[in-house]
Each structure stands twice: as structure tokens, then as C-alpha cells.
Nucleic acid binder design. Structure first.
Lengths: 141, 141
DNA sequence: TACTATTACATAGTTAGCTATACAATGCTA
DNA sequence: TAGCATTGTATAGCTAACTATGTAATAGTA
């Protein structure tokens, strides 16, 4: 029960649930966060372009976008040049929650890392990046 | 995209998928792992007793047990003293994969942590435990 | 002893991830 | 230019997590 895998999984679930509670008032859920971050950066992307900015599978994104549309966060327009594609646009609502959402996420980060010093936090993030990198090249071998 | 939350989530998903591939030949899936670990330790538990050993919700376990039964890993008997409860027993198959499953899990741990020194690994695990502890008491306040 | 509260487990419904596959539009090539 | 391959997105079906709620059995109490 103390393996890295177990701990990472446990930690991830706890963090998602904290995030879920904090952003519920904004009318969004954790799975929408990465897509929103990308769209706040650049609106009007196609699904493919958005996908390239995220670390999830195409089918996962397609379903997330359906829920975001249902929830009034985005709308989609036909692509001017390619009838297969649609461009994705934040609604007023999707745009309006930006600052509060950033706030909530940063707040959580701060709170949960409060017991680690700056150096420890830096090390922690760097270990995660290194392990992620390692897995990705273990997988492609 | 580099927040602790994002990294933890990403890492957890990557690890689960690695585990999924490695244990597929054994006829088990990642969600069954914690329950199996507990049952390999002690067979014949009730759902409630098993639940107490795991960090998931009761409903999640109930569904996992249904799939484990379906997959021939466990069987359930009526509890001798309490008709509401049932005792959970590994089948021969559930018992037989124990060593290979442990092996696979340890192997993955080793591989993905290979780029961290022993000290770094220790620190990494300890940071995760500290953050988990912090979240749990942030939540209860 | 008859209610009522509690307990053990199951079920419903949701999110969010995955793989595999379908489908229509586009692009390339003989 | 007709036909095939590729691409962009959607859908189906699965696991695994969550909360909320149902149900039957047990336990506690007036």
C-alpha cells in the first residue's frame, strides 16, 4: 500500500475530488479544466488543434466537448474550409469563469503543498516530470 | 500545464495504463489490484472488512467485486452469522496469479523510478505521503 | 415484543479515462 | 476524374471512480 503507483493514484483521486468541490460553484468539473485552460489561451480551435495541446485521447476529448457544450461552456461553428471539422468557441459563461477557476486551482495547489518547502516542492514537481518522461520512453520501446 | 495537480493526474493515468498492459495476461485489471492484495493477505473477509483496508468508497468496491466474481477471481459465500453479509474468497485462479502480479507491480515500480536515486525515490514517496496527509486534513476542516 | 434505527450491501446515475471502430469529407494518384 | 487512402470527429463499449439512494437484515429500545 506504499508503492509509488498506489500513492500516485491515491493522491490523484484526492486532488480531483478537492478540485471538483472547489469548482462546482463555477459550473464546471475537473475533466473540463484542461480544455478550458487551452481555450482561455486561444479560442476558435478545432478539436484536433485542441487535442494537440492536451494529454488525453481523441475520444475522451470528443466526449468532454459534448458535455461542455451541454453545460453552456462552449459552442461550435462549422469550419470555414473543412466540413469535417468544427471550431470551438467559449461562450460568455465559459469566458467569465476564467479568473475564478485559475484562482481556485492556484489556491488548491498552494494549500496542498503548504507543508513542503519551496525546495521540496520544486523537487517534487521535478521528480514527477522525470518519472513521466521515463514512462513515456519505457512505453515506446 | 505544470501544476502539481496536472502532473499527478497525468502520472497516475500513465501508471495505470502501464499496469493494465502488464497484468492483462493474468486476467486482471488495475482496479482489482488493491482488493487482490488485501485478499492475498487474508481470505474470507466480508465486504466491510475488505473496505476498511482500501481507500475507495463502498459503492466502488461493490462494483469491483461484481467484476472480480464475473472474471472468476473470487466467489462469495453466505456469512455464517449475518445474512446481510457475504464472505469473499479467492478462487484457485485468484490465488494462482499472486506471485506474477506482485512481480509485475514491483517491476513497474522499479522501471519507472529507475532515473531517480534511492534518496530521490525516498523523498518522492515521502512528499506524496505528506501531501496526501495534508489533503486529508484540509478536507476535514 | 413491536418499532425504529442502524448496518451491509446493492443499484442508479454521473464523470472521465481508455481502445476500437464507424463515417463522412478531403486529398492524392493512376 | 474516379477511386482509394487519409483525416476529423463521433460512437460504442469498457473500467473505475464518485454521490445518493434503496433494501433487507440486524440490533437496540420504549
Amino acid at each position: 500500500m506504499n508503492s509509488a503507483g498506489y500513492l500516485v493514484n491515491n493522491l490523484a483521486r484526492l486532488l480531483v475530488e478537492v478540485l471538483r468541490k472547489r469548482i462546482a460553484p463555477l459550473g464546471i468539473v475537473p475533466g473540463q479544466f484542461p480544455a478550458l485552460l487551452a481555450l482561455w489561451e486561444k479560442d476558435g480551435l478545432t478539436q484536433k488543434e485542441l487535442l494537440a495541446m492536451l494529454d488525453i485521447e481523441q475520444a475522451t476529448l470528443a466526449n468532454t466537448l459534448i458535455r461542455m457544450e451541454r453545460d453552456g461552456l462552449i459552442s461550435r461553428k462549422e469550419h470555414p474550409a473543412d466540413a469535417r471539422a468544427r471550431t470551438i468557441h467559449l461562450t460568455d459563461q465559459g469566458r467569465s469563469i476564467r479568473d475564478s477557476a485559475y484562482q481556485a486551482a492556484m489556491q488548491i495547489n498552494e494549500e496542498v503543498l503548504a507543508d513542503l518547502s519551496e525546495d521540496e516542492t520544486r523537487a517534487f514537481l521535478s521528480y514527477m516530470r522525470r518519472v513521466i518522461g521515463k514512462i513515456k520512453d519505457v512505453e515506446n520501446s
